[in-house]
C-alpha cells in the first residue's frame, strides 16, 4: 500500500533521513521504532508532505507523492495523527472531528463517520461540546485518532501516541490501537515505547540516526539481542 524507496529528507542543511526504504502492506500494522531524535517524526512528516523529500520516492498504492500538494495527501487515503496530538484546543470535540472530515470526499459521510467514531470512543460522545484543550491527555489522544479516522483513511499514521501520557493511560492507548486494527484499518505507528508497540504490530523497522538498522516481524525484533539490550532494557 505504502512504499518508500531510498528516501532522504531534512530541514534546511540538516539531514534527518538517509536512504530509508520501507513498506506497509494492506491490512498490516507496522511500527517504526527507535530512540529520540532518530528521525521517526521526520519520516511521518515526509510521508504527509509537511516537509519535502530531498531524494528517493514515496508511493501510495503505486502513485508517487512527488507532485501531490500537502493538503491533497489526505485524499489518497493517508491520514496522520501528529505528534503531541495537536488538537485545536479552542474548538469543541465535535468541531475537531469536523475538521477531520474537511475534504470534499469526506463531508457527505460526516454524520455516518461521526457515529462510527462515537461508537468506537463513547467518551467522545459525552464530551462532544467540550473544548478539546480542556480534556485529559488520554481523551485528547482518542479525539486525535477519531479526527484522523473522520476522513475514512486507508492507512492511519500514528506519531508517538503514547508520548507524554501517564503509564496507566499508555496501556489504554495501545488497547485503542489494537481496537482500531480490529476495525480493519491499516496502521503505521511510530513509537519509542518498544516493548508495548511490538505487542500490537505485525512487523517493525528499527530507525537509528536516520537509517533503517533492522527490519522484521514483531516477534523477530523483540527477540533480537540488539533490541533486547538497547530498548527493552533490564
Amino acid at each position: 500500500m505504502l512504499e518508500l524507496s531510498r528516501v532522504s529528507a531534512g530541514y534546511g542543511s540538516f539531514q534527518a533521513l538517509f536512504d530509508v526504504s520501507l513498506e506497509v502492506r494492506a491490512g498490516e500494522a507496522v511500527a517504526v521504532i527507535g530512540p529520540n531524535g532518530a528521525g521517526k517524526t521526520t519520516l511521518l512528516r515526509a510521508i504527509s508532505k509537511l516537509i519535502e523529500v530531498s531524494a528517493g520516492e514515496i508511493r501510495m498504492e503505486g502513485r508517487s507523492l512527488g507532485d501531490v500538494p500537502a493538503h491533497r495527501i489526505i485524499d489518497l487515503g493517508l491520514s496522520q495523527v501528529p505528534e503531541h496530538r495537536r488538537l485545536f484546543p479552542r474548538l469543541t470535540v465535535e468541531e475537531n472531528l469536523r475538521m477531520g472530515a474537511y475534504t470534499a470526499a469526506a463531508r457527505p459521510k460526516f454524520a455516518q463517520r461521526l457515529e462510527m467514531v462515537y461508537a468506537l470512543f463513547p467518551r467522545m460522545k459525552e464530551r462532544r461540546h467540550q473544548m478539546a484543550g480542556t480534556m485529559s491527555g488520554g481523551e485528547q489522544q482518542m479525539c486525535a485518532i477519531g479526527r484522523a479516522l473522520m476522513s475514512g483513511p486507508k492507512l492511519l499514521l500514528l506519531d508517538e501516541p503514547s508520548a507524554g501520557l501517564a503509564p496507566v493511560i499508555v496501556q489504554s492507548i495501545f488497547d485503542l490501537v489494537r481496537k482500531i486494527r480490529e476495525e480493519g484499518y491499516t496502521v503505521m505507528i511510530v513509537e519509542q515505547n518498544v516493548r508495548q508497540v511490538l505487542k500490537v504490530v505485525d512487523r517493525a523497522y528499527l530507525l537509528e540516526v536516520g537509517r533503517i538498522k533492522l527490519a522484521g516481524s514483531a516477534a523477530e525484533l523483540l527477540a533480537s539481542a540488539e533490541i533486547q539490550k538497547a530498548y527493552v532494557g533490564l
Binding site: 509537511l50 489526505i74 485524499d75 475538521m99 474537511y102
Partner: peptide, 23 residues
C-alpha cells in the same frame, strides 16, 4: 460551516492544517 471552522482552527494550529486537507 466547514470553511468557518477551518478559519477558526487555523489560528490555533497553523502547521497541521494540511493534514486536515486544508490548504
Amino acid at each position: 460551516t466547514y470553511l468557518g471552522t477551518a478559519i477558526r482552527a487555523i489560528s490555533q494550529d497553523r502547521a497541521i492544517m494540511p493534514l486536515m486537507g486544508v490548504s
